[in-house]
């Protein structure tokens, strides 16, 4: 009996080790590769013989990667702020008021968030050009609202619904209107929900590729994903893998730190969006 349990225990730990290796190895390998230079890059050793930060220096000096990171930060921060601002009030109405067309509106919001982005590409291109925002970060941010806004509205609606009614009643007695209720009373209580939602929307905007590839043109307006996708050498066989891996590590490590730090909040946001709906 004890032997069986011991084997079970060992099996479980083997399984856990496999899971960890499977999840973490590609990032580990990218880190190791990013520290190699020259011909060492093409040898499969797990430890760089002469670890060097040349690749990291290069991406910030030879390539405008610092600029790309700032662009991504600016676009993602801007679009999250606007999305949250627009959706707090909308979520209050959708989550708490009974009105005609509410269900239809919610379903529309949900279907927009599940929309293939390529389906609006030509129409958006026209809008962007008409507004004179082609190859600008503002234009790119505007297009990102198509996926961040439905998401923040949907998730915040779920959170708004769970707020106690008593707060509204007493606020009404004190003579407060809907604005005071939403911004003065509910918003402070929704802090954690805003963090979850904002973080997930931020990650989505930070990772977006198709619009960034299509609506920006010049290297100095590129965000991180198209910058990493387009790092290239003279031919397909001369891709600067060292640079690509260094850039990958640079943008991934902060993101992982963020995810680890806010793990619980992220899970709360994801499940509120997917399960409670």
């Amino acid at each position: 009996m004890r032997a069986v349990r011991l084997i079970g225990r060992a099996g479980l730990w083997l399984l856990v080790t496999l899971i960890v290796a499977y999840s973490a190895f590609p990032l580990l390998w990218a880190t190791v590769s990013s520290l190699k230079t020259g011909s060492a890059l093409f040898e499969p050793s797990l430890w760089p013989g002469h670890a060097s930060l040349t690749n990291y220096r290069d991406i910030f000096t030879v390539q405008p990667f610092g600029r790309n990171i700032l662009n991504s930060l600016a676009v993602a921060t801007g679009v999250v702020t606007v999305s949250l601002g627009l959706s707090v009030t909308a979520a209050y109405a959708l989550g708490r008021a009974a009105f005609r067309g509410r269900r239809l509106l919610l379903l529309t919001v949900l279907s927009v968030s599940m929309f293939p982005q390529v389906a609006v590409l030509s129409g958006l291109f026209e809008v962007i050009r008409w507004l004179g925002l082609y190859n600008s970060l503002t234009g790119l941010g505007l297009t990102y609202l198509i996926f961040t806004l439905p998401f923040t509205v949907w998730v915040l609606t779920a959170f708004m619904r769970s707020m106690p009614r008593e707060l509204e009643e007493s606020a009404l007695v004190d003579g407060a209107g809907p604005w005071r209720i939403v911004f003065g009373i509910f918003l402070p209580l929704l802090g954690p929900a805003l963090v979850s939602t904002g973080l997930l929307a931020f990650i989505a905007a930070w990772n977006e590729f198709l619009f960034a590839l299509t609506f920006t043109l010049t290297a100095d307006r590129r965000t991180v994903p198209p910058a990493i996708a387009s790092m290239s050498g003279a031919s397909a066989y001369e891709l600067p893998w060292g640079h690509i891996m260094a850039a990958s590590v640079v943008v991934t490590v902060p993101l992982i730190a963020l995810v680890l730090a806010f793990q619980r909040r992220i899970v709360a946001g994801l499940t509120a969006g997917a399960v409670k709906g």
């Binding site: 909308a90 008021a97 509205v153």
Partner: peptide, 25 residues
């Protein structure tokens, strides 16, 4: 009170979605 707030609370969001999703589609 909730219902009174609906138009002003929902319209900005709906207008933005119409601009970046509905019209382009």
């Amino acid at each position: 009170m909730r219902r009174r707030a609906v138009p002003l609370f929902v319209l900005p969001m709906a207008a933005v979605l119409a601009l970046v999703a509905g019209w382009p589609l």
